[in-house]
């Protein structure tokens, strides 16, 4: 084997170990930490009292979504 071959082999094997190992550790940690215990709660973690579920948070400048929706033809 030439030095480049060895370098390549080391990179490939190293990558598999590092990469696969990291994924396995991350998945194991997530299970232990209870990340997959309550999916419903997880999906709501991006909302808060200031931006609660049920409230739109973006509009073109000057547009009031609530007024638009109340007066929309549909």
């Amino acid at each position: 084997m030439t030095p480049p071959d060895i370098a390549l082999l080391a990179t490939v094997v190293g990558s598999i170990v590092l990469f696969g190992g990291a994924a396995a550790i991350a998945l194991g940690w997530a299970f232990r930490d209870g990340q997959f215990d309550n999916f419903d709660q997880g999906s709501k973690s991006i909302f808060g009292p200031d931006e609660p579920v049920g409230e739109a948070t973006d509009a073109f400048p000057g547009i009031n979504v609530e007024v638009e929706e109340a007066t929309a033809p549909w």
Binding site: D50, E51, E55, A56, T57, D58, A59, P61, G62, I63, N64, V65, E66, V67, E68, A70, T71
Partner: peptide, 13 residues
């Protein structure tokens, strides 16, 4: 709040 939605009723529909 960081909402970028006009406050209620300040905007003519």
């Amino acid at each position: 709040p960081t909402l970028f939605v006009e406050p209620q009723a300040t905007y003519p529909p």
